[in-house]
């Protein structure tokens, strides 16, 4: 298993004069399921298109399985791509959609038939072989698109927002399906998403991107629990992030005096880490929402907005209520200036 199965080296990508990715280095391991995660405009889709060969890099190189493919045209790269729109051919049946690429390889008919049947079987669509894409549901179209790419036995399979067009129930089903297919085929998969929950649930490793630069790369566990930057912390649910000063912490409206033991950088709390109902600080409830097992509060305090959740069984506060709260140091995530983040000791 190669650790550098797909290797992007000093890759720079631009649309005309607009630079999207300034300089990117990334190594993808053989057989892993990796997510390119980030808000829209972060360059994740552009990077994926560059790997596929749909866009030529300005500078830099792309290696796949040890071969430099930077100048290899998209149709000769042996890479599969499942489009967000699925991009199925509306004039062809499900069978012919899957057979499309095989026929271009001048494979004989028997071989095509057996491979297509196997491909449709793998995604559970064998019974719909004669249907046109328009006569299939969204989930079926998605699986057809997946099967169309898989029968080509690509070295790398790219997936653009694979779950975004599906409803919640289908999303779970597809997630399991993707993981199963990846296990069974061992194909290296790269998927692009803006949804952190999707990346956390599906990927072996996550590449978090911001403005064309890799912000953090690691396992789901690492990114969720040890965000390396303010951006990463914010992206993974640390909704209360404040700068540390000599006297306390500073929000966008003001500051909160107190001892926080950290010297510099930022302190971050997940909403669940905020204590509501007791503590040294005072705020006003400006929003409350019931979310099943917990209650979500927005508290307006001297330093700005605090997002907090409490178990639904706790005392309920109403909008306008004055409420005490605490930002306990134990459980806060500290992001010092220019160094690794650390979990503050209890």
């Amino acid at each position: 298993m190669s650790d550098r199965f797909v290797s992007l080296q000093k890759l720079s990508l631009a649309y005309g004069q607009t630079e999207v990715v300034p300089e990117l280095d990334l190594d993808i391991r053989e057989g892993e399921l990796i997510a390119l995660l980030g808000p829209s405009g972060c360059g994740k889709t552009t990077t994926m298109r560059a790997i596929a060969g749909l866009m030529a890099p300005k500078t830099g190189k792309i290696f796949i399985d040890g071969t430099d493919v930077t100048r290899t045209p998209a149709n000769k790269r042996g890479i599969g791509l499942v489009f967000q729109s699925y991009a199925l051919f509306p004039h062809l049946s499900a069978f012919e959609n899957v057979a499309f690429g095989l026929r271009l390889k001048k494979m004989d008919n028997l071989e095509v038939t057996s491979r297509v049947e196997h491909g449709l079987n793998t995604v559970g669509l064998a019974h719909l072989a004669a249907r046109k894409p328009a006569e299939m549901s969204g989930g079926q179209q998605q699986r057809l698109s997946l099967s169309r790419s898989l029968v080509m036995e690509p070295k790398v399979l790219l997936l653009d927002e694979p779950l975004s067009n599906l409803d919640a129930r289908l999303r779970l089903e597809m997630r399991t399906e993707l993981q199963r297919l990846q296990r069974e085929t061992g194909i290296t998969m790269v998927f692009v998403t803006h949804d952190q929950a999707e990346a956390l649930a599906l990927a072996d490793r996550i590449v978090l991107m911001k403005e064309g630069v890799i912000e953090q790369l690691g396992t789901a566990d690492e990114l969720y629990n040890k965000p390396a930057s303010k951006f990463a912390a914010d992206f993974f649910g640390f909704e209360n992030i404040f700068a540390v000063s000599d006297a306390g912490i500073v929000g966008n409206k003001g500051s909160l005096a107190g001892t926080f033991e950290a010297q510099d950088g930022h302190l971050a709390w997940r909403p669940g880490a905020v204590v509501v109902g007791k503590g040294p600080y005072e705020g006003t409830v400006t929003g409350v929402a019931f979310a099943g097992e917990q209650r979500e509060y927005v508290i307006e305090a001297a330093l700005g907005q605090i997002k907090a959740t409490t178990p639904a069984t706790d005392k309920r506060y109403e909008i306008g209520d004055s409420v005490a709260f605490d930002l306990p140091l134990a459980g806060a995530w500290h992001l010092p200036e220019g160094r690794q983040g650390v979990l503050m000791a209890k």
Binding site: A52, L54, N75, S85, L104, K105, R148, S149
Partner: peptide, 15 residues
């Protein structure tokens, strides 16, 4: 007609 479709065809080996 979505241009995705042409890109899909190219990735499947079409010129």
């Amino acid at each position: 007609l979505e241009s995705d479709m042409e890109e899909a065809a190219v990735l499947l080996g079409c010129s």
